[in-house]
Amino acid sequence: MSGWLTALRAIVLREALRFVHQRERFLAALVRPLVWLLVFAAGFRAALGLSIIPPYQTYITYEIYIVPGLCGMILLFNGMQSSLSLVYDREMGSMRLLLTSPLPRWWLLLCRLIGSTAISILQVYAFLAIAAMLGITVPWLGYVLALPALVIAGVMLGALGLALSSFIKQLENFAGVMNFVIFPMFFMSSALYPLWKMAESSTLLRDICAVNPFTHAVELIRFALYQQWNPWALLWTLLATVFFLALALWGYDPARGMIRRKG
C-alpha cells in the first residue's frame, strides 16, 4: 500500500509542478470563461430570455445562468490539455517508463487522472472567485457543496481525455481531435442555453443535448451550486465516467493499445 501511495504522491506532484511551470496554462484556463462571462453574456443578455427553471427560484440574468457551464468549460479544456500532455509524454518515452511500473496500470492512470482533476478544480474556484468579485455570486454553501460535483465532472472529462490519448498516435493529430470533441460537447449542451430554449428551434438538437454527458456534468454542478440534488445528472455522469475509464484502460492495454504500436 505504501508503494501505491508513493506513486500517487509522485504523479500528482509531477502534475502540480508541470502546472506551476506553465503559468500561461492557468491564465488561458481563466481567459476563456471570462471572455464568455464579460463579452458574450453582455450581448446575449437582451436577446436570450430565461424562464424560472430549477434550481433557480426566480428570474436570473444570463451571466448567472452560464457560470456553471463555464465551470464545466474549464474542466473540459483542462481534461483535454491533460490528455495532450499524455500524448507528449508517450512520444518522449516518459509515459512508457511510467507504465512499466509493477503497480497496476489502472492505478497509474487513475493517479494521473486525480492529479489533473485536482488542478482543474483549483482553476474552477479561481474563476468563481473572480466572478464573485464581479458581483456574480451563488449561495455561500453552494461553493462547498459544488466540490463533489466538480470532482465527479472533472474525473468524467479527464477520463474522456485519457481515452482519447490512448488512441491518438501522433501529437500533430491531437489538435484536430480536440476540436472535434470539445466544441460539439460544449456547444451542444446546456452550458450556454437551457434545453427548453433549444427545443424551440429544433427538437432533434434538444435530444442530442439531452444525451450529451457534458450537459449532465454541467447540470450536476449547477444544482450543487444552488444546494440542490440532481440524481439523474449524477447517474448519467457516473455512467459516462465508467464508460470512458473502461475505454481508456482498453486503449492502454499492452495487447491492444500504445504498447502494441511501439514499432
Rank of each mutant, 00 (worst) to 15 (best):
L5G: 03
L5C: 02
T6M: 03
T6R: 07
L8C: 07
L17N: 13
F19R: 08
V20I: 10
H21S: 11
E24C: 02
L27Q: 05
V31F: 09
V35P: 15
W36P: 02
L38W: 01
V39H: 07
F40D: 03
A41R: 07
G43S: 13
F44D: 14
A46N: 08
L50R: 13
I53Y: 02
I53M: 04
P54M: 01
Y56R: 03
Q57T: 11
Y59W: 01
I66K: 02
P68D: 09
G69R: 10
L70D: 02
G72T: 08
G72F: 00
M73I: 02
L75E: 01
F77Y: 04
S83H: 12
G93V: 04
M95E: 01
M95G: 05
R96C: 07
R96W: 01
R96Y: 05
L97D: 14
L98G: 05
S101F: 03
S101W: 03
R105V: 00
R105N: 03
W106N: 01
C111P: 11
R112P: 06
I114E: 05
I114V: 15
T117G: 11
A118Y: 10
A118N: 13
I121E: 02
L122M: 12
Q123E: 07
Q123N: 10
V124D: 02
V124C: 11
L128N: 05
I130W: 00
A132R: 13
L134K: 12
G135P: 15
I136A: 02
I136M: 04
V138R: 09
W140F: 05
L141K: 12
G142N: 09
Y143K: 03
V144W: 00
A149D: 13
G154N: 11
G154Y: 00
L157M: 04
A159Y: 00
G161R: 02
A163D: 06
S166Y: 00
I168T: 15
E172Y: 00
N173G: 09
N173V: 00
N173F: 01
A175D: 15
G176I: 08
N179C: 07
N179I: 07
V181G: 14
I182Y: 02
P184V: 14
F187N: 13
M188R: 04
A191Y: 00
Y193V: 11
L195M: 08
W196G: 06
M198K: 15
S201K: 14
S202A: 11
T203E: 08
L205A: 15
R206F: 03
D207F: 06
P213R: 10
P213E: 10
F214H: 08
H216Y: 06
A217G: 14
V218Y: 03
I221R: 01
F223W: 03
A224V: 05
Q227K: 06
Q228L: 02
Q228P: 10
P231A: 12
W232D: 15
W236R: 05
T237M: 05
L238G: 14
L239K: 09
T241R: 04
T241N: 04
V242I: 15
V242N: 07
G251K: 08
G251T: 08
Y252Q: 02
Y252T: 04
D253V: 08
P254N: 08
P254D: 06
A255W: 01
R261T: 06
R261N: 10
K262Q: 06
